[in-house]
């Protein structure tokens, strides 16, 4: 069981936060106790000014990972090579620990929905998105992390579960996983599947990062809004994930109603604590077994 307790990868960064405009100045002034920052790549794919300045400054103090929201890997539009070139030049400049984007599509015929739209889970869609991920990885010269999205619809033609589709994608494209624990919870509630069954199907060797976030619960369905603190059921699912995957770099996404940095750091410390307690429990368990 040893492999499940220590990190399965050498890139373990610890506990991070999303770098948001509201906190730029405070991060530089106070050097908060955050292990790393995740930046939304698109927010910094601009020519200059404050965004680029703060990114450079924060980059000198903290490890950075880059999270993209618009590669639209699942779209039947060809990959946007101009976008990939601009992304690559930002990657060269920032030298992030890794880069990620989503298991989804966003644009078609050059029109952008600015949303992370789910794929039908079919062989055709699988083959298509795998081809695009391979092409993007070849162009960028590195493995990508692919994140599961929250979804509200499922297509009638889907022939496999989300976790079967997601697992097949990462194996065939030879990419890594950014597991969004909140998204698993949201989609499980919306589509009535068992979130733990999802986790159990994921290959621990592929998991490199986790997202946690808050959502809006409407009873019959949940919307992934990133405007609330992480809820208890998602913390519980996070503990299950740590139990299965061992220490994984974890960050909290907050994109709306952004609170004081100190509040987010407190929430991040909750993740640290849950992770530490879960791992300690496992260690005691494996001692008892041994």
């Amino acid at each position: 069981m040893e492999g499940q307790i220590k990190a399965v990868n050498d890139d373990y960064l610890g506990f991070g936060l999303g770098l948001r405009t509201d906190h730029f100045e405070e991060v530089l002034q106070t050097n908060p106790k955050v292990d790393w920052f995740e930046v939304i790549s698109e927010n910094f794919m601009v020519a200059g000014g404050k965004p680029r300045y703060y990114l450079q400054q924060v980059r000198e103090r903290y490890p950075i990972v880059m999270h993209g929201v618009s590669m639209s890997l699942g779209s039947t539009d060809p990959l946007d090579m101009d976008y990939l070139k601009r992304l690559k030049s930002l990657v060269d400049e920032v030298q992030p620990a890794w880069i990620s984007d989503h298991l989804c599509w966003s644009q078609l015929g050059g029109v952008n929905s600015h949303d992370l739209l789910p794929m039908p889970y079919t062989e055709e869609a699988l083959k298509h998105i795998v081809g695009n991920i391979k092409q993007a990885q070849d162009f960028l010269g590195r493995q990508m992390l692919i994140e599961n999205v929250s979804s509200y619809i499922s297509y009638r033609e889907s022939a496999m579960t989300e976790w079967e589709f997601y697992s097949a994608v990462v194996e065939e494209a030879d990419c890594l996983m950014l597991l969004d624990i909140n998204n698993i919870y949201v989609s499980a509630r919306n589509h009535h599947f068992d979130a733990e069954q999802y986790l159990a199907a994921i290959n621990p060797q592929r998991v490199r990062q986790m997202h946690l976030a808050g959502h809006s619960d409407y009873g019959d369905y949940i919307i992934d809004t990133h405007d609330h603190p992480v809820v208890d059921s998602v913390w519980q699912l996070y503990a299950k994930a740590i139990e299965r995957f061992g220490p994984v770099s974890t960050m909290i996404e907050r994109d709306d109603d952004i609170p004081a940095l100190s509040e987010l750091i407190e929430e991040l410390n909750q993740a640290r604590q849950i992770s530490a307690e879960t791992l300690a429990g496992l260690a005691i368990g494996s001692l008892a077994d041994g």
Binding site: D115, L117, Y152, I153, Y155, R156, Y221
Partner: peptide, 24 residues
């Protein structure tokens, strides 16, 4: 082409996306 469930039908599910699109 969209599945419905007892609690939320396909139209309601799709409306989450069209509302989100306009709001954003």
């Amino acid at each position: 082409h969209i599945s419905s469930t007892e609690l939320v039908d396909g139209n309601q599910r799709l409306a989450i996306y069209s509302n989100g699109y306009r709001l954003r």
